[in-house]
Each structure stands twice: as C-alpha cells, then as structure tokens.
Measured scan of single mutants.
Amino acid sequence: SDEELKKRIEELVRRGNKDEARKLAENANSDEARKWWEKLEQL
C-alpha cells in the first residue's frame, strides 16, 4: 500500500539512505510515493 511504502521511504531517508529511498519511490510506480520522496528530500 502507499502508506506502507511512504513509511519505508521515510525510514530510509531518516537513516541517511537516500539513494535506496529514491529507488524505492521510483520503482513503486506510485505518484504518491514519488511526491512523498520529493518532499522528504527537501528536508
């Protein structure tokens, strides 16, 4: 689900694993996940 995906992306970003988070968001084929990633990346 998008919610689970967003949690995983956020967790990866928090751990400093941005590349992994980006790949996850891009491969998810989910606009919501991509937007979430872009938002987190700004922080």
Rank of each mutant, 00 (worst) to 15 (best):
S1M: 15
S1N: 12
S1Y: 14
S1F: 15
S1K: 12
D2G: 08
D2K: 08
D2Y: 13
D2P: 08
D2E: 12
D2I: 15
E3P: 10
E3W: 07
E4S: 09
E4I: 08
E4M: 10
E4P: 06
E4Q: 11
L5Q: 02
L5C: 08
L5Y: 04
L5D: 02
L5R: 03
K6C: 15
K6S: 05
K6T: 05
K6M: 14
K6D: 02
K7H: 07
K7Y: 02
K7N: 09
R8V: 12
R8A: 10
R8Y: 06
I9W: 02
I9S: 00
I9L: 10
I9T: 02
I9G: 01
E10G: 07
E10I: 11
E10D: 07
E11I: 02
E11T: 01
E11G: 06
E11W: 00
E11S: 06
L12H: 05
L12T: 04
L12Y: 00
L12P: 02
L12D: 03
L12Q: 05
L12N: 03
L12V: 03
V13F: 12
V13Q: 03
R14C: 08
R14V: 08
R14G: 07
R14K: 13
R14F: 00
R14T: 09
R15L: 14
R15M: 14
G16M: 03
G16I: 02
G16V: 02
G16H: 05
N17H: 14
N17F: 08
N17Q: 14
N17Y: 05
N17L: 14
N17R: 14
K18E: 07
K18F: 15
D19F: 00
D19T: 09
D19Q: 09
E20P: 02
E20F: 03
E20M: 08
E20L: 10
E20N: 03
E20I: 06
A21Q: 02
A21S: 02
A21M: 04
A21L: 10
A21T: 01
A21G: 03
A21V: 03
A21Y: 00
R22F: 04
R22N: 03
R22T: 04
R22Y: 03
R22H: 06
R22E: 04
R22M: 07
K23D: 07
K23R: 13
K23S: 10
K23N: 09
K23A: 13
K23P: 01
K23L: 12
L24W: 00
L24K: 03
A25C: 14
A25R: 01
A25T: 05
A25W: 04
A25F: 04
A25H: 02
E26Q: 07
E26Y: 03
E26M: 05
E26I: 03
E26R: 01
E26D: 08
E26L: 03
E26A: 03
N27V: 09
N27G: 11
N27D: 13
N27M: 14
N27I: 11
N27K: 10
N27Q: 14
N27F: 07
A28K: 03
A28W: 12
A28Q: 06
N29I: 10
N29T: 11
N29C: 11
N29F: 09
N29A: 12
N29W: 08
S30F: 08
S30I: 05
D31W: 00
D31Y: 00
D31I: 09
D31S: 09
D31K: 06
D31E: 11
D31N: 06
E32C: 08
E32V: 09
E32H: 05
A33T: 15
A33R: 04
A33W: 13
A33E: 07
A33C: 11
R34W: 13
R34P: 06
R34G: 07
R34M: 15
R34F: 14
R34N: 11
R34H: 10
K35H: 13
K35L: 07
K35I: 11
K35M: 08
K35P: 02
K35Y: 04
W36D: 06
W36M: 06
W36E: 07
W36L: 10
W37D: 04
W37M: 07
W37A: 03
E38R: 00
E38A: 00
E38M: 00
E38H: 00
E38T: 00
E38Q: 01
E38W: 00
K39G: 11
K39Q: 14
L40F: 12
L40W: 07
L40I: 10
L40M: 12
L40S: 04
L40Q: 04
L40H: 03
E41S: 12
Q42M: 11
Q42H: 09
Q42W: 05
Q42E: 10
L43D: 11
L43S: 10
L43Q: 11
L43R: 07
